[in-house]
Design a protein around this nucleic acid. Sequence first.
DNA 1: ACTTACCGTAAGTAATAACTTACGATGAGT
DNA 2: ACTCATCGTAAGTTATTACTTACGGTAAGT
Lengths: 105, 105
Amino acid sequence: MAYTNAAFAALADPTRRTVFERLASGPLPVGEIARGLPVSRPAVSQHLKALKGAGLVTDRAEGTRRVYAIDPRGLGAMRAWLDQFWDGALSAFRAEVEQEHKHDD
Amino acid sequence: MAYTNAAFAALADPTRRTVFERLASGPLPVGEIARGLPVSRPAVSQHLKALKGAGLVTDRAEGTRRVYAIDPRGLGAMRAWLDQFWDGALSAFRAEVEQEHKHDD
DNA sequence: ACTTACCGTAAGTAATAACTTACGATGAGT
DNA sequence: ACTCATCGTAAGTTATTACTTACGGTAAGT
């Protein structure tokens, strides 16, 4: 999917991943997300913009505040990409181990 | 896991992700990986070093060449991190949809 | 209407990173 | 011993980016 590129790039930054993790328990307004973080609130806004562009979060207006929530689309894109390697990598790894055991004989 | 940080950072770069994808079909020496890529071979070596540090690839010496293969550890760390959100995000999304359907009545 | 709370964006800065070329080291073949 | 192939690392450059402060805009409350 088109989200794969942006999703990986977005979650690369530790601060941005922390922002994302704060939404795991449920939707939150920007101020709540930024509370206690070592960066300023505008920085959090910029991170949220990047996450939104990657299909990782959605935002809705609620009065004067903006509530963000996790968007499954970006998550799904990353999962699909990972699954592309999962089986192959495991079987290859298994074959690799057996190969090394042969050397032990 | 400790690999989570480095794994996300490693796969953020498109070139590096391409390098990683070339190992999907099986182990390859550096020269084979770099063949046809728009970057130099030393650049590929540097990418492989980053991938190795993230637990995404392993390397073994085979004569004068170095064969790289996909390491399931980094892949597993990312999958575990993703699964941490997967169920919650889906159920939250479902609740969100139902909430909006209520508005349609 | 005025103030306050909440938020996104613009501009500028400092740190990071992806890339290049140059070089050195090791193993295979003659 | 010599040459060639393969690869990792060092040094330097350029582009990207994460952050700050400053500002403007909208909604709610009095």
